[in-house]
Amino acid sequence: MKKERSMNKLIAEFIGTFTLVLFGCGAAVIAGDAIGFTGISFAFGLALIGMAYGIGPVSGCHINPAVSLGAVAAGRMEISEAIRYIGAQIAGAVAAALVLMIIMKGKLSGYDVSASGLGQNGWGAGYLGEYGVASAFVFEAIATFLFVTVILGSTGKGAPSAMAGLAIGLTLVVIHLVGISVTGVSVNPARSIGPALFVGSHAIGQLWLFVLAPVIGGVAAGLVFRTGTLDSEE
Protein backbone atom coordinates (compact mmCIF):
# COMPACT_ATOMS: atom_id res chain seq x y z
CA MET A 1 0.00 0.00 0.00
CA LYS A 2 2.86 2.38 0.85
CA LYS A 3 4.54 1.66 -2.51
CA GLU A 4 1.25 2.30 -4.29
CA ARG A 5 0.86 5.69 -2.59
CA SER A 6 4.43 6.58 -3.50
CA MET A 7 3.82 5.67 -7.14
CA ASN A 8 0.61 7.69 -7.16
CA LYS A 9 2.57 10.74 -6.02
CA LEU A 10 5.09 10.31 -8.83
CA ILE A 11 2.36 9.86 -11.42
CA ALA A 12 0.69 13.02 -10.12
CA GLU A 13 3.97 14.96 -10.33
CA PHE A 14 4.51 13.72 -13.89
CA ILE A 15 1.01 14.77 -14.97
CA GLY A 16 1.22 18.11 -13.20
CA THR A 17 4.57 19.07 -14.72
CA PHE A 18 3.44 17.82 -18.12
CA THR A 19 0.39 20.08 -17.93
CA LEU A 20 2.36 23.14 -16.82
CA VAL A 21 4.92 22.83 -19.62
CA LEU A 22 2.48 21.86 -22.37
CA PHE A 23 0.04 24.69 -21.70
CA GLY A 24 2.56 27.29 -20.52
CA CYS A 25 5.13 26.79 -23.27
CA GLY A 26 2.35 25.91 -25.69
CA ALA A 27 0.74 29.29 -25.06
CA ALA A 28 4.04 30.97 -25.94
CA VAL A 29 4.73 28.91 -29.06
CA ILE A 30 1.25 28.37 -30.48
CA ALA A 31 -0.63 31.46 -29.36
CA GLY A 32 2.04 33.93 -28.31
CA ASP A 33 1.45 36.34 -31.18
CA ALA A 34 -2.25 36.51 -30.35
CA ILE A 35 -2.21 36.64 -26.55
CA GLY A 36 1.09 38.38 -25.82
CA PHE A 37 3.09 38.28 -22.60
CA THR A 38 0.01 38.79 -20.46
CA GLY A 39 -1.75 35.79 -21.95
CA ILE A 40 1.34 33.62 -21.60
CA SER A 41 1.69 34.69 -17.97
CA PHE A 42 -1.87 33.66 -17.20
CA ALA A 43 -1.45 30.38 -19.09
CA PHE A 44 1.36 29.34 -16.75
CA GLY A 45 -0.46 30.56 -13.66
CA LEU A 46 -3.83 29.03 -14.52
CA ALA A 47 -2.23 25.70 -15.42
CA LEU A 48 -0.61 25.68 -11.99
CA ILE A 49 -3.86 26.60 -10.24
CA GLY A 50 -5.67 23.77 -12.00
CA MET A 51 -3.03 21.23 -11.06
CA ALA A 52 -2.82 22.51 -7.47
CA TYR A 53 -6.43 21.52 -6.95
CA GLY A 54 -6.27 18.50 -9.25
CA ILE A 55 -3.21 16.72 -7.87
CA GLY A 56 -2.42 18.71 -4.74
CA PRO A 57 -4.21 16.22 -2.46
CA VAL A 58 -2.08 13.41 -3.94
CA SER A 59 1.45 14.80 -4.11
CA GLY A 60 1.28 18.38 -2.88
CA CYS A 61 1.67 19.56 -6.49
CA HIS A 62 5.33 20.52 -6.38
CA ILE A 63 5.79 20.04 -10.16
CA ASN A 64 9.09 21.89 -9.78
CA PRO A 65 12.48 20.61 -8.51
CA ALA A 66 13.13 23.95 -6.78
CA VAL A 67 9.95 23.49 -4.75
CA SER A 68 10.85 19.92 -3.78
CA LEU A 69 14.35 20.95 -2.72
CA GLY A 70 12.88 23.91 -0.86
CA ALA A 71 10.62 21.51 1.02
CA VAL A 72 13.68 19.41 1.91
CA ALA A 73 15.52 22.49 3.17
CA ALA A 74 12.46 23.45 5.23
CA GLY A 75 12.39 20.00 6.84
CA ARG A 76 9.09 19.04 5.24
CA MET A 77 10.37 16.32 2.91
CA GLU A 78 13.05 13.64 2.87
CA ILE A 79 15.76 14.03 0.23
CA SER A 80 15.14 10.49 -1.03
CA GLU A 81 11.53 11.32 -1.82
CA ALA A 82 12.52 14.65 -3.35
CA ILE A 83 14.87 12.88 -5.76
CA ARG A 84 12.00 10.66 -6.93
CA TYR A 85 9.77 13.70 -7.31
CA ILE A 86 12.41 15.49 -9.38
CA GLY A 87 12.77 12.49 -11.68
CA ALA A 88 9.01 12.46 -12.30
CA GLN A 89 8.95 16.22 -12.83
CA ILE A 90 11.72 16.19 -15.40
CA ALA A 91 10.11 13.24 -17.20
CA GLY A 92 6.80 15.12 -17.35
CA ALA A 93 8.48 18.25 -18.72
CA VAL A 94 10.37 16.31 -21.39
CA ALA A 95 7.21 14.46 -22.43
CA ALA A 96 5.31 17.75 -22.70
CA ALA A 97 8.05 19.35 -24.80
CA LEU A 98 8.02 16.31 -27.08
CA VAL A 99 4.26 16.55 -27.55
CA LEU A 100 4.54 20.29 -28.24
CA MET A 101 7.26 19.65 -30.82
CA ILE A 102 5.12 17.02 -32.54
CA ILE A 103 2.20 19.47 -32.69
CA MET A 104 4.36 22.27 -34.10
CA LYS A 105 5.98 20.04 -36.69
CA GLY A 106 2.48 19.27 -37.92
CA LYS A 107 2.15 22.79 -39.34
CA LEU A 108 1.63 22.53 -43.10
CA SER A 109 4.08 25.39 -43.61
CA GLY A 110 6.70 23.53 -41.59
CA TYR A 111 8.38 24.37 -38.29
CA ASP A 112 12.08 24.59 -37.47
CA VAL A 113 12.43 23.84 -33.74
CA SER A 114 16.06 24.91 -33.55
CA ALA A 115 15.21 28.30 -35.09
CA SER A 116 11.75 29.04 -33.66
CA GLY A 117 12.06 27.17 -30.37
CA LEU A 118 9.65 25.55 -27.94
CA GLY A 119 9.33 28.32 -25.36
CA GLN A 120 12.80 27.63 -23.94
CA ASN A 121 14.40 30.00 -21.45
CA GLY A 122 17.42 32.15 -22.28
CA TRP A 123 19.18 35.49 -22.09
CA GLY A 124 21.54 37.66 -24.12
CA ALA A 125 21.60 39.04 -27.64
CA GLY A 126 18.64 37.97 -29.74
CA TYR A 127 16.56 36.70 -26.80
CA LEU A 128 13.49 38.80 -25.97
CA GLY A 129 14.64 41.85 -23.93
CA GLU A 130 18.34 40.98 -24.45
CA TYR A 131 19.33 41.06 -20.78
CA GLY A 132 22.77 39.91 -19.63
CA VAL A 133 23.64 36.82 -17.62
CA ALA A 134 23.86 38.72 -14.31
CA SER A 135 20.33 40.11 -14.71
CA ALA A 136 19.05 36.67 -15.67
CA PHE A 137 20.65 34.97 -12.68
CA VAL A 138 19.50 37.59 -10.17
CA PHE A 139 15.94 37.52 -11.48
CA GLU A 140 15.68 33.72 -11.47
CA ALA A 141 17.18 33.30 -8.00
CA ILE A 142 15.10 36.02 -6.35
CA ALA A 143 11.87 35.18 -8.19
CA THR A 144 12.22 31.52 -7.18
CA PHE A 145 12.95 32.51 -3.58
CA LEU A 146 9.75 34.56 -3.44
CA PHE A 147 7.75 31.90 -5.30
CA VAL A 148 8.82 29.11 -2.94
CA THR A 149 8.22 31.41 0.03
CA VAL A 150 4.60 31.79 -1.08
CA ILE A 151 4.29 28.03 -1.59
CA LEU A 152 5.74 27.08 1.80
CA GLY A 153 3.83 29.82 3.58
CA SER A 154 0.46 29.14 1.99
CA THR A 155 0.73 25.39 2.67
CA GLY A 156 2.07 25.68 6.21
CA LYS A 157 0.32 25.43 9.56
CA GLY A 158 -2.27 28.12 10.15
CA ALA A 159 -2.57 29.03 6.48
CA PRO A 160 -5.99 28.91 4.76
CA SER A 161 -5.22 25.79 2.72
CA ALA A 162 -8.27 26.12 0.47
CA MET A 163 -6.77 29.28 -1.00
CA ALA A 164 -3.22 27.96 -1.42
CA GLY A 165 -3.57 26.94 -5.06
CA LEU A 166 -4.97 30.31 -6.04
CA ALA A 167 -2.27 32.25 -4.18
CA ILE A 168 0.51 30.14 -5.70
CA GLY A 169 -0.86 30.31 -9.23
CA LEU A 170 -1.37 34.08 -9.12
CA THR A 171 2.16 34.52 -7.81
CA LEU A 172 3.43 32.65 -10.86
CA VAL A 173 1.37 34.98 -13.07
CA VAL A 174 2.98 38.06 -11.49
CA ILE A 175 6.47 36.57 -11.82
CA HIS A 176 5.86 36.00 -15.53
CA LEU A 177 4.40 39.47 -16.08
CA VAL A 178 7.62 40.97 -14.70
CA GLY A 179 10.20 38.53 -15.98
CA ILE A 180 9.25 37.12 -19.38
CA SER A 181 11.34 39.70 -21.21
CA VAL A 182 14.34 38.92 -18.96
CA THR A 183 14.57 35.12 -19.20
CA GLY A 184 11.23 33.84 -20.45
CA VAL A 185 10.81 32.88 -16.76
CA SER A 186 11.89 29.52 -15.47
CA VAL A 187 11.80 29.45 -11.63
CA ASN A 188 11.54 25.73 -12.38
CA PRO A 189 14.46 23.60 -13.65
CA ALA A 190 12.16 20.93 -15.09
CA ARG A 191 10.25 23.53 -17.13
CA SER A 192 13.59 24.66 -18.61
CA ILE A 193 15.08 21.22 -19.20
CA GLY A 194 12.16 19.88 -21.27
CA PRO A 195 12.18 22.41 -24.13
CA ALA A 196 15.97 22.88 -24.11
CA LEU A 197 16.60 19.19 -24.83
CA PHE A 198 14.72 19.44 -28.13
CA VAL A 199 15.86 22.92 -29.14
CA GLY A 200 19.48 21.96 -28.49
CA SER A 201 22.74 23.91 -28.84
CA HIS A 202 22.32 27.43 -27.43
CA ALA A 203 19.39 26.49 -25.17
CA ILE A 204 21.36 23.61 -23.64
CA GLY A 205 24.41 25.83 -23.25
CA GLN A 206 22.40 28.26 -21.12
CA LEU A 207 20.54 25.58 -19.18
CA TRP A 208 22.94 25.67 -16.22
CA LEU A 209 21.54 29.04 -15.09
CA PHE A 210 17.97 27.77 -15.10
CA VAL A 211 18.95 24.85 -12.91
CA LEU A 212 21.36 26.59 -10.53
CA ALA A 213 19.56 29.89 -9.88
CA PRO A 214 16.12 28.36 -9.10
CA VAL A 215 17.70 25.71 -6.86
CA ILE A 216 19.56 28.41 -4.91
CA GLY A 217 16.37 30.45 -4.57
CA GLY A 218 14.21 27.51 -3.57
CA VAL A 219 16.66 26.13 -1.00
CA ALA A 220 17.16 29.61 0.47
CA ALA A 221 13.40 29.97 0.97
CA GLY A 222 13.30 26.54 2.62
CA LEU A 223 16.10 27.45 4.99
CA VAL A 224 14.27 30.61 6.05
CA PHE A 225 11.24 28.51 6.98
CA ARG A 226 13.44 25.97 8.75
CA THR A 227 14.65 28.69 11.12
CA GLY A 228 11.05 29.39 12.11
CA THR A 229 11.31 33.02 11.03
CA LEU A 230 8.13 32.82 8.96
CA ASP A 231 6.19 30.34 11.08
CA SER A 232 2.61 31.21 11.97
CA GLU A 233 2.04 32.16 15.60
CA GLU A 234 -1.17 30.15 15.70
Rank of each mutant, 00 (worst) to 15 (best):
Phe225Tyr: 15
Gly194His: 05
Ala28Thr: 14
Gly54Gln: 04
Leu10Gly: 07
Ala136Asp: 12
Ala96Thr: 09
Thr17Asp: 03
Pro160Gly: 09
Leu209Arg: 06
Gly169Glu: 03
Tyr111Asp: 00
Leu48Met: 11
Val72Ile: 01
Glu234Ser: 15
Ile168Glu: 04
Val173Glu: 01
Asp231Phe: 05
Ser135His: 12
Tyr111Phe: 07
Ala52Ser: 14
Leu212Thr: 15
Val113Pro: 02
Ser114Cys: 10
Leu20Thr: 13
Ala82Thr: 10
Leu209Asp: 13
Phe44Lys: 03
Gly205Asn: 07
Val219Ser: 03
Leu152Trp: 02
Val67Trp: 04
Gly45Cys: 04
Ala220Gly: 06
Val178Asp: 13
Glu130Tyr: 02
Asp33Lys: 15
Val99Trp: 07
Pro160Val: 08
Leu230Cys: 12
Val150Ala: 03
Ala74Phe: 10
Gly50Asn: 02
Val178Ser: 07
Phe145Thr: 06
Thr149Arg: 02
Gly222Asp: 14
Gly39Thr: 10
Val148Ala: 00
Phe147Ala: 02
Ser192His: 08
Ala164Tyr: 00
Met104Asp: 01
Lys3Val: 15
Arg84Cys: 10
Leu166Lys: 03
Ile142Cys: 03
Ala162His: 15
Thr19Arg: 09
Val58Ala: 12
Cys25Gly: 08
Lys157Tyr: 07
Leu170Ser: 03
Val219His: 04
Gly132Met: 00
Ile102Val: 07
Met7Ser: 14
Ala220Tyr: 06
Ala66Lys: 01
Val138Gln: 00
Thr183His: 09
His62Pro: 01
Gly184Trp: 09
Pro160Leu: 09
Gly126Cys: 04
Ser41Ala: 13
Gly45Pro: 00
Gly124Gln: 06
Tyr131Asp: 06
Met1Gln: 15
Asn121Leu: 05
Ala115Tyr: 02
Leu212Asp: 13
Ser192Lys: 09
Val138Arg: 02
Cys25Ala: 14
Arg191Gln: 11
Ser59Ile: 11
Gly218Tyr: 09
Ile79Leu: 05
Val94Gln: 10
Leu46Asp: 09
Leu212Ile: 14
Gly56Lys: 07
Phe225Val: 06
Ile35Asp: 11
Met1Phe: 15
Phe139Tyr: 08
Val133Asn: 07
Tyr53Gly: 04
Gly156Tyr: 13
Val21Cys: 11
Lys157Met: 06
Val174Tyr: 12
Ala190Phe: 04
Ser135Thr: 13
Asn121Pro: 08
Ile90Gln: 06
Val133Ile: 14
